[in-house]
């Protein structure tokens, strides 16, 4: 069996590949469902219904997808430039820290100013979290996979320290949590009687903006060129290191905004379990979307739907919610395989 690169890829294949990949992962997981003794189709119907079958389910799914869109974009932008940022989780918490620092009484502004301020502060904090990795990469060729990954734990310990110490809310009855965000900073709810908040619109707007920027702006051109061939990009006079820095600030900033959304939109105050791994899930979201900013929206909603639907499915029939993790993991693997098939043609002999 050999692989040959395709000269041209038909459009139907590009569209069909991720769909087929998701279908393949559903078939794979049905084996696990059969193992639990439950009917497969019913289980998937419950999953689908739980995620998209009611206005409550849809609102929950979209709420869940909000941070995933932003962390997915963070990863997609970075990976496009071949800057392997595995630290969206830490950058998300940095954004949350900034929102807590600014938004718990330090400044009081009317909401029209306060909410943008929190997002800008969170974005800056997320970007700052990447300064050290990008500097080490550019100057000393230190692998950013290692530095960004390990910084996640450093940042999480910093959050833990602040929540147990200086930032601990005296009103929290001893729980490690920070003071709540002031009312002016809380993100408005988009849909009555739901948890869906303004963060979703921020995520959607970011995705569209980044798609447009990658396509039409000079910075976008430079990011694409550096990602595809840094040597040729540098030769043509594109500042490779500066582009890397821009990518890092953008990526960290997006992840930081995800943290702001969770603190100021959903939870209201900073805790240690603010994110159940949204940063890491962002990698899956980005890979599932083939690093396309608009695709990130779809794959984030898909992932969120699986998690929300798996919750309600496991309540209805006796299937553990872990099935959601298996579904997500196998979809990502299947998508990676299908992307290879899009780029190459398999020849048997």
């Amino acid at each position: 069996m050999t692989l040959e690169p395709r000269e041209h890829t038909p459009l139907w294949l590009v569209v069909l590949a991720p769909v087929a990949a998701v279908a393949a992962s559903l078939i794979l997981c049905s084996v696990l469902i059969l193992w639990t003794g439950q009917p497969v189709l019913k289980a998937y119907a419950l999953l689908l219904g739980g995620a998209f079958g009611s206005s409550f389910g849809i609102a929950e799914t979209l709420t869940r997808s909000t941070p995933l869109i932003l962390t997915g974009l963070a990863v997609a932008v970075a990976f496009r430039a071949k800057f392997w940022n595995i630290g969206a989780e830490g950058q998300l918490y940095c954004g949350a820290l900034a929102a807590t620092w600014l938004g718990t009484g330090m400044i009081n502004l009317p909401p029209v100013l306060m909410i943008p301020l929190l997002f800008v502060g969170g974005a800056v904090a997320g970007g700052v979290a990447l300064l050290l990795p990008v500097f080490l990469k550019v100057r000393l060729k230190v692998d950013e996979v290692v530095t960004t990954l390990l910084l996640n734990f450093v940042i999480l310990l910093l959050v833990s320290f602040l929540l147990e110490g200086p930032w601990k809310d005296p009103m929290s009855l001893g729980w490690p949590q920070a003071a709540p965000i002031v009312d002016e900073g809380v993100l408005p709810v988009l849909l009555a009687k739901s948890r869906l908040h303004l963060g979703l619109l921020v995520g959607l707007a970011s995705a569209i903006l980044i798609w447009a920027a990658m396509r039409w702006s000079i910075w976008g051109y430079e990011i694409r060129a550096v990602g595809l061939n840094p040597q040729a990009a540098g030769f043509a006079g594109i500042p490779v290191n500066l582009t890397m820095l821009r990518v890092a600030m953008l990526s960290g900033g997006l992840a930081g905004m995800a943290g702001v959304g969770e603190v100021a939109g959903l939870k209201g105050y900073l805790t240690l379990d603010l994110s159940p791994g949204f940063g890491y899930a962002g990698i899956a979201v980005a890979m599932l979307a083939n690093l396309h900013p608009i695709g990130v929206i779809l794959s984030a909603v898909f992932l969120a739907g699986i998690y929300v639907g798996a919750d309600s499915m496991s309540r209805a029939v006796n299937i553990p919610t872990y099935i959601a993790d298996v579904l997500v993991a196998s979809s990502v693997l299947a998508v990676l395989v299908s992307l290879m098939l899009v780029r190459f043609r398999v020849r048997f002999r």
Binding site: Y221, R224, A225, L228, N229, Q231, A232, A233, F235
Partner: peptide
């Protein structure tokens, strides 16, 4: 390796 970015278009 150095002259062109192969995956960009001709005009790019």
């Amino acid at each position: 390796a150095t002259g062109v970015v192969g995956d960009l278009t001709v005009w790019e």
